[in-house]
């Protein structure tokens, strides 16, 4: 528990320290490079902004209409077997399809339940450890005109489900 927190706390400062020292040793103009890279961050956020509004509208509608609660109540008995909180199901289902949509859903879940709650931690860990599987497969295969993807989807989904189950288990253990 404490070790998990300690290592997690160490990771960011260590990575920044390491990269900057590395840059200085190799005599790069680290500050100029940093500024140049930071500019790119603005573009990332600007690009994602319209999607955020669109998805927040849909997710907000789903939740405020009471539909999410209805679905959660239906799914609860099944999910309880695996000790998966039903609240993260919208994220688990959207995650393989769209990166920005699942980001909006994760934000919604985290802000509703609290960033440091078990559900908030699970949602964060799922977001960090899985990818937009369907999108990635579609992008990489269509770029070279491939139609037969063989076992790729099965393996990628096995990876996603494993990642999600492990996320739930670790976060339950942590708190």
């Amino acid at each position: 528990m404490n070790i998990i927190n300690y290592l997690s706390n160490m990771a960011v400062p260590m990575v920044i320290l390491f990269i900057i020292i590395y840059g200085v040793i190799e005599k790069n103009k680290v500050y100029d490079t940093f500024i140049e890279g930071a500019k790119e961050g603005i573009q990332v956020v600007v690009n994602i902004f319209p999607t955020l509004i669109g998805i927040f509208l849909a997710v907000g509608a789903l939740r405020s209409s009471g539909l999410v609660e209805l679905i959660i109540n239906i799914l609860k008995p099944i999910l309880q077997i695996f000790e998966i909180p039903a609240e993260i199901m919208p994220l688990a289902l959207l995650r393989p399809i769209s990166g920005s949509a699942s980001m909006a859903v994760a934000t919604d879940i985290i802000s509703k339940h609290g960033a440091d709650s078990v559900i908030g931690l699970i949602a964060s860990t799922i977001m960090g450890s899985t990818e937009t599987t369907f999108y990635t497969i579609a992008l990489y295969t269509s770029a070279v005109g491939i139609k037969k993807t063989r076992f790729v989807l099965i393996s990628a989904l096995i990876a996603d489900i494993t990642g999600m189950l492990v996320s739930v288990a670790i976060c339950r253990f942590m708190s």
Partner: peptide, 30 residues
């Protein structure tokens, strides 16, 4: 970034869990 914008006391606390989950997922996939 999301966690710190939503007022987490410890936004980076998920790093180790994310590493473990990612590695398990990658191993299962490959």
């Amino acid at each position: 970034a999301i966690r710190s914008s939503l007022g987490s006391n410890n936004p980076t606390s998920i790093i180790l869990p994310v590493w473990i989950a990612t590695i398990c997922a990658a191993v299962a996939g490959t």
